[in-house]
Design a protein around this nucleic acid. Structure first.
Ligand code: MN
Ligand code: MN
Ligand code: MN
Ligand code: MN
Lengths: 222, 222
DNA sequence: ATCAATTTTTAGACTAACCTAAATTTATTT
DNA sequence: AAATAAATTTAGGTTAGTCTAAAAATTGAT
């Protein structure tokens, strides 16, 4: 069965929304917003995806992916994230530049290509933003989930990922000298506004807002 | 101005046919055959490409690329051939496997990507089939044009490219142990059927047909 | 439980890229 | 120079993927 790039984008969107949201299903309007399409267009496509048995769809009800639909969605996520690693590691793109190009590359159809790319890159487990890369079987490494804002204790941590992927946010982190893998020392937590005083790799301390902190994923330094 | 992948494929086809053929223009029927589309569909697209000023088109006359159309066509050829080099050099695909995947990759839109890929590959001048790779300005290195079948003299040559790109032909060459860069010693030329007795890299001699010889591009060993 | 607001679906239209069948133009024979 | 053959275009359709406007269903507030 042939799957178009457009259909792939819908599957990916449903997958993203159903993983992020707390509820099980995904609404027409959330897809409409996520894909920048009108709700009527979404309904149209939902019917076609349903005909292809890629989603569970009942009129006026939230949709969800079938086994097959999820398998495809995860395969696309795998391709997207592997290409992002390629762009960053091999072609020296910055982490705020890779997503847009990967949006195109993720639709290239060749299983052999993606498996060889995976090998070439050394089977990376996480992409340049700290997102987990599913393996060829569709199994995801455990996601990085611990936001800095959840932690009050002083101590040493490692910056391992971002919650927010917008270019502006990524550039902001770059401008304050923060990149994946850096050490973060929490020196102070202000319960008043939720801001932090931190040191990145032992450099001079600086304040970061609660909003920024809530989008930084960290691990305790081992 | 937005150019679709389909439009890109038409431009590439016109470019290929106008470079290969002796005549200046390209006919609707040759495009129809090359692209496996009906002539009526071709006419349809020719009008649209003409509206976009990418081709010169007059009803019932052969078409040709405008300056802008040629620039785009060459850019696509550049992308195609660079991706072929990538697939072969970095991902270890065989030379008969790269074309199909490159047909997809050539439509990825990002100038930055292709320039970085070019750098990553060491600015190759020829692709895995010996075809010249245009530089970023659209200038082509001189093409390999000397077919083995044009030569009767015994002597030492280097195999530098193929005229024919079909998978079967490429696999045949692989099966007789011939790859780009190999030395070919002409030991005998049979004027009766145009076949040759050759030695590849000093290995035992073998016969190749006129047809094969006519698709092998060689240079005199310097 | 009813009514209003919101969400979703339907109906009807549009474009890109294809198709078949028929008409037209150009090329080739006689 | 006609007549025939071949190439090309036109006319009219189809599908994927989008849209707007209107109808229908669901949700949520009184
Ligand atoms: Mn991304
Ligand atoms: Mn990412
Ligand atoms: Mn090729
Ligand atoms: Mn090639």
């Amino acid at each position: 069965m042939e799957i178009s790039s457009t259909e792939e984008n819908y599957l990916k969107a449903i997958y993203a929304l159903q993983s992020s949201g707390d509820k099980p299903g995904v609404s027409t309007s959330s897809l409409s917003e996520h894909l920048n399409n009108k709700a009527a267009s979404v309904t149209d496509m939902l019917k076609r995806l349903s005909d292809k048995k890629l989603i569970h769809y009942k009129k006026y009800k939230a949709v969800s992916l079938t086994k097959q639909g999820e398998k495809l969605a995860i395969a696309i996520v795998r391709k997207h994230r592997l290409w992002e690693v390629f762009l960053m590691e091999k072609l020296n793109f910055k982490w705020d530049e890779v997503h847009e190009i990967a949006e195109q590359l993720e639709h290239i159809k060749s299983d052999e290509l993606i498996e060889r790319l995976d090998g070439f890159l050394g089977q990376p487990k996480y992409d340049p933003h700290g997102d987990p890369i599913p393996n060829a079987k569709g199994v995801l490494p455990k996601p990085k989930t611990s936001a800095l804002s959840k932690i009050q204790n002083k101590g040493l941590y490692i910056f391992v990922g971002v919650n927010e992927h917008h270019v502006d946010f990524l550039r902001h982190l770059t401008s304050i000298g923060l990149k994946i893998g850096d050490q973060i020392k929490i020196e102070e937590h202000n319960s008043y506004d939720g801001s932090y005083l931190i040191r990145i790799n032992k450099k001079p301390g600086q304040y970061i807002s609660h909003k920024v902190a809530s989008n930084l994923l960290i691990e305790i330094k081992s």
